[in-house]
């Protein structure tokens, strides 16, 4: 690990005034420290912002505001989250281990890097780690990689479970920079596709910081499900995951949300399938047709063709489980 200076700014203003590209904020550290040990991240200075950021879950208008420093485990036990946004708690519980959930922060979860094996192996080319060096995964070991939204520059997937639920519920990400300029970014625009800048995972402005994640009031607290399929039953990253939520009225689907993890460079929303579900009766044939819409534009890589049928089954199962959960 490269040596660095360490300090703990007493407040956010101070932290932001010192922040530059060679300076890293540390919250939970569960991803950053790992990246520093592997010499993928090498900041000159590390700023402990654990007390500068909010670790409260508060009511915000008719919705909820999750402070950037709220630990993942706190989300899973919070009464408001469990009663009004249970999909979020369910997704968090599907990720990592109890130890890591006790450490990891909400904002850090959004900002975690991909677990593509070539990103982690500094002896191989990787456009995300070293722009312009090439993508080793596109013709390499890519069974864990993307099946949609990728390009020849990068086929990595975003590893978060929490973010899949936040994408499904149209959360917003509140950010601020050193000039106290605040920006609210809709969740669907927070993470980005690789494009020509695969080294960037998201649209967080340079040297800005996430202060909270906000979720508006929504009707998806009754019929929802988070399904995560992976190589082992727990403590593994998703091959594919599906967050499904239905708003049922008079035995019809008034509104639907469908999002996936493990399939793209960002948490992926299946808008077309959601549109299809609206107004239909919740039945096995409706769900099957929606699953067909989900997989129609999916283009697996050389080693992850299995993800297509796996995703189809996962969407069907998640939607079915919305009715019984």
């Amino acid at each position: 690990m490269k040596p660095f200076t360490f300090s703990k700014p007493e407040n956010l203003g101070k932290a932001l005034s010192i922040k530059k590209d060679t300076v890293q904020f540390i919250a939970g550290g569960t991803n950053l420290l790992d990246l520093m040990k592997k010499n993928i991240a090498g900041p000159d200075a590390v700023l402990d912002i654990t007390t500068a950021l909010s670790s409260k879950i508060e009511q915000q208008g008719k919705g909820v505001r999750i402070g950037a420093m709220v630990r993942n485990s706190a989300i899973t036990t919070d009464k408001t989250i469990l009663s009004k946004y249970p999909l979020v708690a369910k997704a968090v519980l599907a990720g990592a281990s109890p130890q890591i959930r006790n450490m990891a922060s909400t904002a850090g979860n959004l900002l975690q890097r991909t677990r593509c094996p070539y990103f982690y192996d500094i002896t191989t080319p990787c456009n995300k780690r070293k722009p312009g060096s090439g993508c080793s995964a596109i013709n390499g070991e890519n069974r864990m990689n993307a099946i949609v939204g990728y390009n020849e520059q990068c086929v990595a997937v975003h590893p978060s479970d929490l973010c899949v639920a936040l994408a499904a519920l149209d959360a917003t990400v509140a950010t601020t920079d050193k000039n106290k300029k605040q920006l609210s970014i809709p969740f669907k625009d927070f993470h980005k596709l690789p494009g020509d800048t695969p080294q960037l995972d998201n649209n967080l402005p340079a040297n800005a910081i996430i202060t909270s994640v906000d979720i508006a009031e929504n009707p998806f607290s009754k019929n929802f499900y988070y399904l995560k399929l992976r190589d082992r039953d727990s403590y593994a990253f998703a091959l594919v995951s599906v967050a499904a939520a239905l708003h049922l009225q008079d035995n019809h689907i008034a509104d639907a949300r469908l999002a996936s993890g493990g399939v793209a460079h960002k948490p992926w929303r299946w808008y077309e399938a959601e549109q299809y579900l609206k107004g239909k009766a919740p039945s096995a044939s409706t769900f099957s047709a929606a699953a067909d819409i989900v997989i129609k534009d999916v283009k697996p890589l050389s080693n992850n063709g299995f993800k297509k049928s796996m995703l189809r089954g996962a969407v069907e199962t998640a939607l079915q489980n919305c009715l019984t959960a």
Binding site: I26, G29, L33, Q99
Partner: peptide, 22 residues
Amino acid sequence: CGACTVHVDGERVLSCLTLAAM
């Protein structure tokens, strides 16, 4: 792997991913 699990303020965490400075 979890072999390094300890408690910080009564909660289980991974000591290998905890910076002593914090």
